[in-house]
Write a protein that binds this DNA or RNA. Structure first.
Lengths: 339, 339
DNA sequence: TTGTAGGCGTTATCAC
DNA sequence: GTGATAACGCCTACAA
């Protein structure tokens, strides 16, 4: 493998000079610089990160530790956001996922440390509260799409489920809907409570009574193996005499079943029932016809800003834990009509 | 940072002895070994991969280079398969994606080389033919879900789209369907041709005439910004006088639109129309009611076996390029009925 | 069974 | 502006 020494020889300079050129340090004649650069090109020299790291004790690598993210369709955009930030700033990404197993998590932290990564992004697939097994170690960490269980130990960056659901609810109210159905997300998800809470409050502020609402549980049980009541709940809801004129779905995926339930019941969307989702999981929200009005979970930004934040935590060594929130933009499409 | 030297001092032995213990080499008294291990625990020593790598010129790291995989819901399971293999075998994963930009691809190869990764897994989101910009370098590489453009330069591992579509077609034929509709995948995807070809041949072998078939294009144009004709095509197909009794969908996602088209046209699934998908993208195939019968793309296995293969290419230094294919298992659910 | 010396590819230090 | 030399943490080779 061609090293800095071979380049130095080829260019007829010392290795330190080559190092200077590589790192863009000053105090090198334009002439020498060019000779060195030519040698680098000729020999196809590529710096060895491992060696560099040994000296500088900086790996320029971030670790991503996920539960199932890399595994699930929903939040992959977080990873994309991180990657984009990383390669704009010359960082590399080491990635591992726990598959939900705590013992794996411990191994991963060890692996990360053995690579002397500069920091960790702790990412979850669903917005939730977690207990990172980090333990003893004090690697700078930023949590993405989740928050630490034990108080505010670590910085975290999360979607604003509350605001998203509030905007969606207002959107329906402003369009004249007064009987609104709501099919709930699995309660073990943090978003479930936040969204439902936003819905309830907004509707109340607007003066609707609890009896105008029809709230059903869509799913429950462990993620990945949940009981699914969505289709049944929607069907039942829509066959009531005073059926809602609009339904808020816990998320876009559940909206598929609501669409099918509505159509099967002979109702047209949106003329007979309006439907809104949550997430803007485009594989679904754009495949549904009419296309689904929904609130977009800011996954990409969560990742991008999370990486940026981690970087500043690392360099400024300020570990002031705090919580940041990114808003969910309402995406208006065709599944809602005004009354 | 605590190094091998500090451990040696603490244990009152030489650094070489510590090295022996760490690497499980023989010729160490049980007594010394215990002393060293205690020191390691006490000091919280973790080996430095970078330093190790410099000596051994083996990084024990694989690079994953993707187009949009990490970005899209479909094939994330490939990444999970790779990760699972990797951590069962003590390898780390360095990950980057090109976002489809060739210039990014070149940078990524450079980044990989600077980390002296042992091998590369070149992964695409859709089954397709590609032209890796690897170029000059000779890092061991295995292609996953794609194949090299220029002959058989690199080993590749791919799903058996043909077999999957054939099995699905037979499944319909065996259940008495004789008028079958087919809504095609975007033709720029490799799977589009393979699946359609399998459909046509199987149906012909069975003795059906071209006139029993109704084949429409579902999508076309650049991936991510395609024209979508699925809903219109399905609606039209289902409102013919001699409408098909079954429809094969290019994939599960497109099946959403076919379901909606059928229901909107007042048809019941599967009593009036049977529908099959492709991919087993479970977010969709399980959300549809009745649940979708489909062929499962073996993403996880693609990843797992790809990683394994790469490893053997690296260690046996056998770069014999060849193509492997993994079958798509038929997943029977409730969207088809026998006539 | 254990230890010493040297070197991997870098960068830091300090002298020229 | 440039270079010799040491040092980072580990492993290999060889010696004791």
């Amino acid at each position: 493998m061609v090293s800095i020494v071979s380049v130095a020889k080829a260019a007829g300079v010392s290795n330190k000079t080559v190092s200077r050129v590589i790192n863009g340090e000053p105090h090198v004649t334009e002439d020498t610089r060019e000779r060195v650069e030519k040698a680098i090109r000729d020999l196809g020299y590529i710096p060895n990160m491992a060696a560099r790291q040994i000296r500088s004790s900086r790996s320029n690598t971030f670790g991503i530790i996920t539960d199932y993210v890399s595994t699930t369709p929903y939040s992959v955009d977080i990873v994309r956001g991180i990657q984009d930030w990383a390669n704009r700033h010359g960082k590399s990404i080491l990635m591992a996922n726990t598959g939900g197993l705590p013992e794996r998590e411990a191994e991963i932290w060890k692996m990360f440390q053995s690579h002397r990564i500069d920091g960790v992004l702790y990412v979850t697939m669903y917005h939730r509260v977690v207990d990172p097994e980090a333990g003893d170690v004090s690697i700078p960490t930023v949590m993405i799409n989740c928050r630490p269980h034990t108080s505010e130990l670590l910085p975290s960056i999360e979607p604003d489920d509350f605001q998203g659901a509030r905007d969606l609810t207002r959107y329906l109210l402003e369009r004249g809907h007064r009987r609104i159905g709501y099919i709930r997300l699995n309660p073990i998800l943090l978003g479930a409570e936040l969204r439902l809470d936003a819905f309830r409050r907004t509707v109340k502020e607007f003066g609707l009574a609890e009896s105008d609402l029809s709230i059903r549980l869509g799913m429950e049980g462990p993620v990945g193996a949940e009981e699914n009541y969505v289709f049944a709940a929607a069907t039942e809801m829509l066959q009531q005499k005073d059926r809602p004129t609009a339904i808020m779905s816990g998320n876009d995926e559940m909206a598929i079943q609501i669409y099918i339930a509505a159509l099967t019941s002979g109702l047209r969307i949106p003329q007979d029932v309006s439907i809104v989702g949550f997430d803007d999981f485009r594989t679904v929200s754009l495949a549904l016809k009419p296309e689904l009005t929904t609130a977009a979970l800011p996954y990409y930004d969560l990742g991008f800003q999370g990486a940026e934040w981690l970087n500043s935590v690392i360099s400024e060594e300020m570990v002031r834990a705090s919580r940041r929130v990114i808003s969910c933009k309402l995406v208006e499409r065709a599944s809602v009509c005004a009354l």
